[in-house]
C-alpha cells in the first residue's frame, strides 16, 4: 500500500474505505501495512471475545481482531478481508478482519468531526471520529484504538463482550 499524503493548501488524507456490516469505515492508508484477501482463521479458545483467531503471516503468528464482534454483529464464519496493522505499544503486528475493502478515497482533513456524544460507550472507545463526505459520513478507525493490548483492558458494556473470557 502506498499511502500518499499530498501536500496542498488543504491537507488531504487518503483513506482506505472499509465495510463492516452496513457501516462504512476508513483508515489512513499510511497506517496499513498490507491488505490480505480471504484467509482462514484458527480460533483461539479461552481468549477475549474480540479475538477472531490467529493466522500465519510472514513468519509470525498474527492475532486477528474481529471488527464484527467489536460492533456487536455475528461473525460471518469466514474472513473476506484482513488488514495488517501495527500495535505501536507492544511493537507487534496484528490483523483486523473486515467484511470488505473498497476504494481509496481522498478526504480533506478539515472535514473531520470528533465522535458525537450520543455514541455508545463501546463505539466511542473504538471510533476515532468521522469525515463528512459529499454523500454521507465515513467513520475513521485507528490502529491505536483497535490494538489487542488496549481492547483487552477496556470494557464493552453495551455489547456484552466479556473482557477476559475465561481468564482465571
Amino acid at each position: 500500500m502506498n499511502g500518499t499524503k499530498e501536500k496542498g493548501d488543504a491537507e488531504i488524507i487518503s483513506l482506505c474505505s472499509l465495510r463492516v456490516g452496513d457501516a462504512a469505515f476508513g483508515m489512513d492508508t499510511q497506517q496499513i501495512h498490507e491488505v490480505l484477501g480471504a484467509s482462514v482463521l484458527q480460533p483461539v479458545p479461552l481468549s477475549h471475545d474480540f479475538v477472531g483467531g490467529v493466522i500465519p503471516y510472514r513468519g509470525d503468528v498474527l492475532l486477528v481482531v474481529c471488527t464484527r464482534r467489536l460492533l456487536g454483529l455475528e461473525p460471518l464464519g469466514k474472513v473476506l478481508n484482513l488488514l495488517v496493522l501495527r500495535d505501536e505499544v507492544e511493537n507487534e503486528l496484528f490483523g483486523l478482519a473486515v467484511d470488505a475493502v473498497d476504494d481509496v478515497l481522498t478526504v480533506d482533513a478539515a472535514s473531520f468531526e470528533a465522535n458525537p456524544c450520543t455514541l455508545t460507550a463501546a463505539q466511542k472507545a473504538i471510533f476515532a471520529g468521522a469525515y463528512k463526505l459529499r454523500d454521507g459520513v465515513i467513520v475513521r478507525l485507528e490502529p491505536e484504538l483497535l490494538r489487542p493490548s488496549r481492547l483487552a483492558e477496556i470494557q464493552f458494556p453495551g455489547l456484552g463482550i466479556r473482557t477476559a473470557a475465561g481468564v482465571a
Partner: peptide, 12 residues
C-alpha cells in the same frame, strides 16, 4: 512462534 501477550493471558 510467540503469541501476542493478550493470547498468552489464559496461561494455556
Amino acid at each position: 512462534k510467540p503469541l501476542a501477550r493478550v493470547l498468552r493471558a489464559s496461561g494455556v
